[in-house]
């Protein structure tokens, strides 16, 4: 089986400071991997390097493209990488306003990726937008409203719809539930789980919330000071952590 994404020796330095160092892993189709660690552990740097938002100093991000098989996205041309970003890849930002066009209606936000890949039939675009609003549990009557009139949870669901409308195969998520109320988080997590299962998505989720990875991720990587200190099956890493830092991280969570 060919990995969907194969990351090799990913390294990013900020001057003398290490962003992330020598991170390698394979992600297979349908797998969801969580990356946890405290602030400054390098998990967001790693995510942004993989998604092509930052240029790594060393390493490969080999993606199994639909047309040409495995390709290193770090060395591919920028137009190709940006095309991936509009088709097979999706990126869900922590703050919906970073991932949405706040001045554009909900329907326009969802439709943008469709139009970016050449759809030119208004009726079709609108039908797909309506369908996706339904799938993320946003009332179809809100299709012409701007996201500024939406609650935080709705904005985040809209961002997810906007990202998934073109049927990507790999979704990068940066703290997707950060800053949301607990009840809203639960709804979003349930939604994400269903979408991942039904669409067979692969996903990489960066978060500091261990409850989020327990519910969403099959696998887990624990990062500290830019390096992976432990990786494995999510429930195994959480229930039987091996590394000193993972043990500290798990034992630091307040039980409710």
């Amino acid at each position: 089986m060919t990995p969907l994404l194969s990351v090799q020796g990913m390294t990013k330095r900020y001057g003398a400071h290490i962003g992330c160092a020598d991170v390698s892993f394979d992600l297979y189709p349908g797998e969801v991997m969580g990356i946890v660690g405290e602030s400054g552990s390098g998990k967001s740097t790693l995510l942004n390097c993989m998604a092509g938002h930052l240029r790594p100093d060393a390493g490969q991000v080999v993606f199994d493209t639909r047309t040409d098989g495995p390709r290193d996205t770090v060395t591919m041309s920028e137009p190709e990488r940006r095309m991936l970003g509009r088709t097979d890849w999706a990126f869900v930002h922590q703050h919906a306003r970073d991932g949405l066009r706040m001045g554009v209606s909900a329907g326009g936000n969802v439709g943008e990726r469709l139009m970016a890949v050449g759809e030119r039939h208004y009726g079709d675009i609108r039908d797909k937008a309506t369908d996706w609003l339904g799938r993320v549990e946003i009332d179809a009557a809100r299709i012409d409203d701007r996201p500024t009139t939406f609650s935080g949870g709705m904005q985040q669901r809209l961002q997810i719809a906007r990202n998934l409308v073109t049927g990507p195969r790999l979704v990068f998520m940066d703290e997707p539930t950060g800053g949301l109320d607990v009840s809203v988080q639960a709804r979003l997590l349930d939604l994400l789980r269903g979408l991942v299962r039904d669409m067979g998505l692969s996903a990489i989720i960066v978060t500091h919330d261990l409850a989020v990875v327990r519910l969403l991720a099959d696998r887990l990587m624990v990062m500290k000071n830019g390096r992976v200190v432990e990786a494995g099956l999510t429930d195994q890493v959480l229930d039987d952590p091996q590394h000193a830092y993972s043990q500290l991280l798990v034992s630091s969570v307040l039980q409710v």
């Binding site: 940006r82 509009r86 554009v104 329907g107 326009g108 439709g111 990726r113 469709l114 970016a116």
Partner: peptide, 10 residues
């Protein structure tokens, strides 16, 4: 990358 132009028309 001109998808955005059609967003305006949409």
């Amino acid at each position: 990358e001109y998808g955005l132009m059609h967003v305006k028309l949409y």
